[in-house]
């Protein structure tokens, strides 16, 4: 811990304004510096902690960078086969309907190999929360092109940039699931600035509360960065994301409950 002489009168337990939730364990996260996964883990742990759901939460982690999520958040977490998290979460929710069930998936998991599971779970209106971290690249395996990669964006398997004619255009899973009648709340957020972190936390809190109503799937896309895969510094990658990714993946609510 780092302390400077003269601030000891401020650093007292009664003056604490903010610290990470105890649900986020002390294990050092395996994510690269600047990766948005850490922030999403932190706010998810905070929401679960604030609503007192630690013993009533079951998460499903994907295959991808966040596969080791069970090391970082102190709740029950089941690891699913690649792309199959919504199917596993369906079974968990149907067997234990009183629990809060969420899936946490990246774009390679949710939008590529798990497209069928995602669309059908949303179409059935399974009463789960799906968190979708979209950074437009396969981060863990070395930055290959994903379905969500932007047109013209370079990756290790599209070194000259993605060409729409031969490789297709970015797949907007969130827009697709918003058109399905089974979804209840669909939104797209980001975690690159403190203001956006607060908005995302609010969205997660809403989704947790909607799950108690049993009205359908809640789907939150979080547009995130991959400094290592994009070959940028964390600050550069956040700026690039704002300038280049947000026009393709605009932030905001796509489907809100009609009350």
């Amino acid at each position: 811990m780092f302390e400077i002489a003269g601030i000891r009168e401020i650093v007292k337990p009664e003056n604490l304004a903010y610290r990470k939730s105890d649900l986020l364990t002390e294990n050092v996260m395996s994510y690269c510096p600047g990766c948005g996964h850490g922030t999403v883990h932190r706010i998810l742990a905070e929401v679960i902690d604030e609503l007192g759901l630690q013993s009533d939460t079951i998460g499903v982690s994907p295959v991808g960078c966040s596969v080791l999520m069970y090391n970082y958040i102190d709740v029950d977490i089941q690891q699913a086969a690649h792309g199959r998290a919504p199917a596993v979460a369906t079974a968990i929710k149907r067997l234990l309907p009183e629990k809060f069930v969420f899936t946490y998936q990246g774009d390679g998991d949710l939008a590529a190999i798990g497209t069928a599971e995602t669309i059908h779970a949303c179409n059935r209106g399974e009463n789960i929360l799906m968190l979708f971290i979209n950074n437009g690249i396969y981060g863990m395996t070395g930055g290959q092109m994903a379905p969500t990669t932007l047109v013209g964006m370079k990756s290790s398997t599209s070194p000259a940039g993605r060409i729409a004619k031969t490789m297709g255009s970015p797949l907007k899973m969130t827009d697709i699931v918003a058109t399905l009648p089974g979804t209840y709340y669909v939104t797209r957020q980001s975690v690159h600035t403190p203001a956006n972190v607060r908005k995302t936390k609010k969205a997660i809190r809403k989704a947790v509360q909607y799950q108690k109503l049993d009205r359908g799937t809640c789907f939150i896309e979080i547009v995130s960065n991959c400094p290592s895969g994009w070959k940028m510094t964390p600050v550069q990658s956040n700026k690039w994301m704002e300038e280049t990714m947000f026009p393709v993946y605009p932030l905001g609510d796509l489907k809100t409950p009609e009350e």
């Binding site: 650093v11 948005g36 932190r42």
Partner: peptide
Amino acid sequence: LDGVIAVY
């Protein structure tokens, strides 16, 4: 990103 800062 890693929750290392506590604020007083």
